[in-house]
């Protein structure tokens, strides 16, 4: 037998009562599956498309162009002294990662009924893989950002914007957003398994949330009476932090940071509990 070195333990199958937290040991045992899922997500995303990975760039580039016309030219929303292309691209870098990860995590249970109904493996491997695989898109879009940055900097409108010393914390910002989207996604996945209403809700909620977050406008332009609302939004902090790191054009502060990190951790922990509570029997009610 192939796994003589690893003795097979006894599995006891019975009704679990109460809440379960993470089974790290099991997730570790299935780490190969996690990586295969990551690789499957990446390699299957643009199969049988002409442009392939170019799509990673086309989508944010077109969105940025549309934003430039509508919000900058027509709407005249200021972009903190930064060329609007860089301003929007920087916001989209993070926003796209959030919305993609959130939506794929939210669909975990409903979209995988066929496999989940046939074989057991830790269900969390599926959303975790999308948290990781979506980073590929971020990396490619980052290249686009760098190119536009170089072009704008050598152009006539080169201003005082640019990288700041805090840029080394960039991975932390993305980690923060990864956990945030994962946590919210787990909640939605659990709720959707019970009530399909939430699948509909999640779709347009994400759309609306973009306008409620400083993606197309800077936090500094939010009127004072609306500021508390912007501050509650856990995405405000990472968006502003990223802009301040890459373009020196954001206004994150400690209060925003503490609020956002607290919301993230609470959502993540409760999301894990709720997801695992629903996951064990959801196949009976789906």
């Amino acid at each position: 037998m192939s796994r003589d070195t690893k003795p097979v333990g006894e599995t006891v199958i019975e009704a679990t009562h109460g809440w379960r937290f993470l089974n790290f040991r099991e997730l570790y045992d299935y780490r190969d599956l996690l990586w295969l899922f990551v690789w499957r997500d990446i390699s299957s995303r643009y199969k049988q498309t002409l442009l392939g990975p170019v799509w990673y760039v086309v989508q944010p580039a077109l969105t940025t162009a549309v934003f430039m016309v509508i919000f900058s030219r027509v709407g005249r929303i200021p972009t903190n002294g930064v060329p609007s292309s860089l301003f929007y691209l920087c916001g989209l870098l993070l926003w796209n990662y959030f919305s993609q990860t959130f939506q794929s995590t939210a669909g975990t249970l409903v979209n995988n009924v066929a496999v989940f109904g046939k074989v057991y493996f830790p269900r969390l491997t599926v959303p975790l893989s999308s948290v990781i695989s979506n980073l590929v898109g971020v990396a490619i879009q980052f290249v686009l950002f760098t190119i536009i940055f170089a072009i704008e900097k050598t152009g006539p409108r080169a201003g005082s914007y640019g990288l700041t010393g805090a840029a080394w914390m960039l991975p932390l910002v993305f980690m923060h957003v990864a956990l945030l989207s994962f946590g919210f996604g787990l909640w939605l996945a659990a709720l959707t398994a019970k009530f399909r209403d939430f699948a509909v809700l999640a779709g347009f909620l994400v759309q609306l949330l973009m306008y409620a977050s400083p993606v197309i406008y800077p936090l500094s332009r939010v009127p004072t009476r609306w500021y508390p609302l912007a501050a509650i939004n856990p995405l405000t902090f990472p968006l502003e932090a990223l802009r301040s790191m890459l373009l020196n054009a954001g206004s994150p502060n400690l209060n925003l940071g503490v609020e956002s990190i607290t919301v993230t951790l609470v959502t993540l922990l409760t999301g894990l509990l709720v997801f695992q509570r629903v996951e064990k029997n959801f196949i009976d009610v789906i």
Binding site: E10, I13, F116, G117, K118, V119, N281
Partner: peptide
């Protein structure tokens, strides 16, 4: 037995790895 759903009561002990044959290409 393949841990897709939990029993309401009672218990099953399994001393080994279980694999269930997937339906036509599930997964």
């Amino acid at each position: 037995l393949s841990r897709i759903t939990e029993p309401t009561s009672g218990r099953a002990r399994i001393r080994g790895r279980v694999a269930s044959l997937l339906e036509v290409g599930t997964g």
